[in-house]
């Protein structure tokens, strides 16, 4: 008996038809479309401070997309992605300031440089297992601010540099912050699509194989070292791009913006968001931006207190992160709506 007779379809049933109830949200496309429209409408509806906050969410979202490649896909731990963010942020500060290059050059330039640095660091890093990579990358993150200060002639030392952002073209009739938001949104959308494509590609499937069972992957002819190095470099590139966007949005870079805390919070946000989920980076970025902003009013120490508590609670109670919780909630809603 062939498939067609048994199921009434020409192809093998997959997903919902085959009884898979994990993909529970009934309207993925519609939701995505609504989200996209809402994201485009943001700069015209909200006040400038909210627009700034949401721009930062997108910036961190791009960085977390990259970090998730290493943490969620490659199964390695990096506590040093702040270093790539710093590199990406100093590229526009130096290139469009003292060197006088035009703005559009900064983005590809920092992507390229971060990719190169990621490749250089990934070569030794791929030999390290598990927590050893975390230790090395943590040390890199600690070294970044002193290095920036040491080469003060280029980087402006501890005083920092101010960065000019691309301003809105006159035909658009937009304010600069609205234009910047849309620019960051476009970059984030491209980055998201690129990650989806990467994960669906041959390299993405090889990564999944490496993560699930390195020995079996190697037997099947997957070159583990090459893939791990490359994914580390990709991940660094995303962080570098996010760094450039950060510099544009904030308009100022200094060593104090790229302390070890940034790297640590990035990893924490990746874990809280859900390292193995497409929604994870966005949720992690929202956590990273809004929890400190909301808790700031209660005092200097409260944001850290709340963030630390949330991280510990999420790790203990919801190992799949906020994205996992969202998935469960979506499942409950879908069941309520009677598709069961």
């Amino acid at each position: 008996m062939n498939i067609a007779e048994r199921t009434g379809r020409r192809r093998l049933a997959v997903g919902w038809e085959a009884g898979d109830r994990r993909q529970v949200w009934p309207w993925p496309r519609l939701t995505l479309a609504v989200l996209a429209v809402a994201a485009c409408a943001v700069p015209f509806l909200l006040n400038p401070y909210r627009v700034f906050q949401l721009t930062m969410v997108l910036v961190y979202g791009v960085a977390l997309l990259g970090l998730n490649l290493v943490v969620g896909q490659s199964g390695q731990i990096s506590l040093g992605h702040g270093a790539f963010l710093a590199l990406g942020a100093y590229v526009p500060a130096v290139a469009t300031g003292p060197l006088g290059l035009p703005h559009p050059v900064a983005l590809p330039l920092s992507a390229l440089l971060a990719f190169g640095l990621g490749l250089a660091l990934g070569l030794p890093a791929l030999r390290l297992r598990g927590v050893y990579l975390a230790v090395v990358t943590l040390a890199i993150a600690v070294v970044v601010p002193p290095v920036i200060k040491r080469f003060g002639a280029v980087t402006g030392g501890s005083m920092g540099l101010s960065v000019s952002a691309p301003s809105a073209p006159s035909w658009s009739g937009l304010a600069d912050d609205q234009w910047l938001y849309l620019l960051v949104l476009a970059v984030a959308a491209v980055a998201f699509a690129a990650v989806r494509n990467l994960l669906g590609s041959r390299a993405g499937r090889a990564l999944a194989a490496i993560r699930e069972n390195p020995e079996a992957a190697e037997v099947l002819g997957v070159r583990i070292a090459a893939h791990r190095t490359l994914v580390f470099a990709w991940s660094a590139m995303y962080a570098g791009v996010a760094g450039t966007l950060y510099a544009w949005v904030v308009g100022f870079v200094s060593p104090d913006s790229f302390t070890v805390t940034l790297s640590i919070v990035l990893l924490a946000a990746a874990v809280v968001g859900g390292p193995d989920s497409p929604a994870g980076p966005l949720l992690g970025a929202i956590f990273m931006t809004f929890v400190p902003a909301a808790a700031q009013g209660a005092g200097d120490a409260v944001p850290g207190l709340v963030s630390g508590l949330v991280i510990i609670l999420v790790v203990c109670a919801a190992p799949a992160g906020l994205a996992g919780l969202l998935r469960m909630a979506a499942g409950a809603v879908a069941r309520r709506l009677g598709r069961e």
Partner: peptide
């Protein structure tokens, strides 16, 4: 490994 690192990092921040 990620869980263990994350929980000690959370502890650090807290």
């Amino acid at each position: 490994e990620l869980t263990l690192v994350a929980v000690t990092v959370g502890l650090l921040i807290f």
